[in-house]
Design a protein around this nucleic acid. Structure first.
Ligand code: ZN
Ligand code: ZN
Ligand code: ZN
Ligand code: ZN
Lengths: 130, 130
DNA sequence: CTAGGTCACCGTGACCATC
DNA sequence: GATGGTCACGGTGACCTAG
């Protein structure tokens, strides 16, 4: 899941090496949320960078999602479908035991901006205000 | 579905007017793809700005999506679920009759860049190469 | 009117610095 | 090791102009 470096002209970078810093990833500890490769434990459980960042953002911004499909329990969450339903992705983060207490608050300007903007999000997204 | 202007500090813009240029939208001609308000016909059918732009981008970049859910015909496409499945959204664009011939090619640098980058997209997205 | 085009905005996740 | 943080990147859609 390591992405190529787009800042390098791809047509020239034919010698693209799929594991530049890929030794960061663990072979036998997949993400407990989506099954992708993890780079270790995050907030209590093995998680990929994506799920870890997603969990952090959700907690920081106090986001509550609603499953658009109305799935009571869970839309399937795997490395293919992972971004399809944020509500169920976050629920699964909690289900596998990721701990929100492990996410420390932050007071960066960017976060404040996002919190402010949050109040003006269109009402049709999957985000519900606290 | 008109979004507020985030460049204005939302906390100050309490007089936010939901129809700044909203007279652009038609009242009785919803988007035939997702049911959102349309601003007229696009590529042959009444379509909202979102579906029109989505259709244009897909044709320009010759994108072929695959339904992650493997729905043979169609995931439901409406203003709530519209972005959940691009494969089925595009299929519905064609089904209601949007015409790809109405999308003219463009040769901007940005498009070429996107076409190049396309070849390096991770294999786990819903995009399949032509 | 419907094309084409723009761009502010957002979510994502790979990567890095810090402890 | 696991935090916090960064930021390049791509997608989106509201809005604009051109014809
Ligand atoms: Zn994951
Ligand atoms: Zn769900
Ligand atoms: Zn639409
Ligand atoms: Zn689908």
């Amino acid at each position: 899941m390591e992405a190529p470096n787009y800042s390098v002209l791809p047509i020239i970078d034919l010698e693209y090496n799929p594991s530049p810093a890929g030794d960061r990833l663990l072979l036998n500890s997949p993400c407990e949320v989506c099954g992708d490769h993890s780079s270790g434990k995050h907030y209590g459980n093995y998680a990929c960078d994506g799920c870890a960042a997603f969990f952090k953002r959700s907690i920081r911004l106090d986001r509550h999602y609603v499953c658009k499909r109305g799935n009571p329990g869970a839309c399937p969450i795997d490395k293919v479908l992972q971004n399809q339903c944020r509500a169920c992705r976050l629920r699964k983060c909690f289900e596998v035991g990721m701990k929100q207490e492990a996410v420390h608050p932050s007071l960066s300007i960017a976060d404040v901006d996002q919190l402010l903007a949050l109040k003006w999000l269109p009402s049709l997204t999957d985000i519900v205000l606290p």
